[in-house]
Computed example of a mutant assay.
Amino acid sequence: MTTTKKYKAPAAEKMLDILELMAKENKYFSVTELSQRLSISSNSVFRIMKELEDKKFIQKNPLDSSYQLTGKLYYLGSSIGNRIALKNIAEASMLLLRDYTRETTLLTKLGSLGRTLVVDQLESLEPIKFLSTVGLEYPSHTSAMGKCLLAFSPPSVLEQYLEHNELTPVTSSSIAHPSRLKEQLEQIRETGYATDMEESCEGLRCLGAPIFNAVGEIEGAIGISGPIFRMSKDHMNRYNKKLLEQARHISELLGYDASRKA
């Protein structure tokens, strides 16, 4: 015990305690709450949070100066991402889709506050391609996969997303009003897939389909992204059939039974 204590690093221990607590609860934390719950002085918590914010491990809510984790911890852990069940199960389908379309194929899950978290990616086989970053969180309302995640999540997820994320248009095609987003999410629930028609980036088109788990809940979304000159509407229609087929296959591997859906 004496040897162990000799090499303890109190500041590092406090930082890890803060990160573990924030990882357990998907919400914003104030400095005061962290101080009280972890019995760490407010001054120490403030200094630690400032360092974590500078390193992009946390983000601040400008309305009340509270904090929540970003996706950076996931990015650091992506080297052991093969332990993630969804990634393992979806691997063969992602490879099939990438080889069939020759476009970048992405696997995503719901991130913090309704944002979209990139879990895995297979690069396009073409020289000109769209690339994302594993561990990146991005706005859900501008992407096909993000809209799938919002469409099939409980209503509270959309409410949380609209509360904490402004529908800032990225391009002239971006959704900029909550009513328009809700209309499109309803359409996605009816068709079972989503599109991104240059809503997240000029010249980029994407398709997204939901993945469900054994209890019928949204587990993630899989998608295809490519430049508009290769993603014509005819190509997208053809790719979408294969995408939906593979999304269903992954869902079934996770134990989802569509016949039990009410």
Rank of each mutant, 00 (worst) to 15 (best):
E126Q: 13
E20M: 03
S39K: 15
P62N: 14
Y138F: 15
S44K: 04
I89H: 03
G203D: 00
E199Q: 15
T70I: 09
H177Q: 15
E217R: 12
L69I: 09
G216Y: 03
G226E: 10
E163C: 08
R205Y: 10
S124V: 06
V119L: 10
R180V: 07
E103G: 00
G81E: 13
L19T: 09
R189V: 09
L73Q: 05
K241N: 03
R83F: 14
P139D: 10
S225V: 07
M231A: 02
Q36P: 01
S156P: 00
A151Q: 05
V157S: 03
L149F: 05
C148S: 08
L34D: 12
E163G: 08
F46Y: 12
D64M: 03
G255M: 01
F152R: 13
P155G: 06
S132L: 13
E199M: 10
N61D: 15
A221I: 13
I80W: 05
T2S: 10
R37Y: 05
F46H: 10
I250V: 15
E186W: 09
Y74D: 12
S132V: 10
K241M: 04
L21K: 11
E163N: 09
T101Y: 01
E33S: 12
G220A: 02
R47Q: 14
I84D: 15
F130A: 00
M22N: 05
M231D: 13
M1I: 10
Q121H: 05
D257V: 01
Q187G: 04
I18E: 02
L117N: 02
K261W: 06
G208F: 05
L96A: 11
L76E: 15
T105M: 00
V157R: 04
R98D: 03
K87S: 14
R47M: 10
Y74C: 11
A176P: 01
V119A: 00
G203R: 07
T101M: 04
A90F: 03
E190N: 14
I40Y: 08
L149Q: 12
L167Q: 09
I89F: 07
S112Y: 06
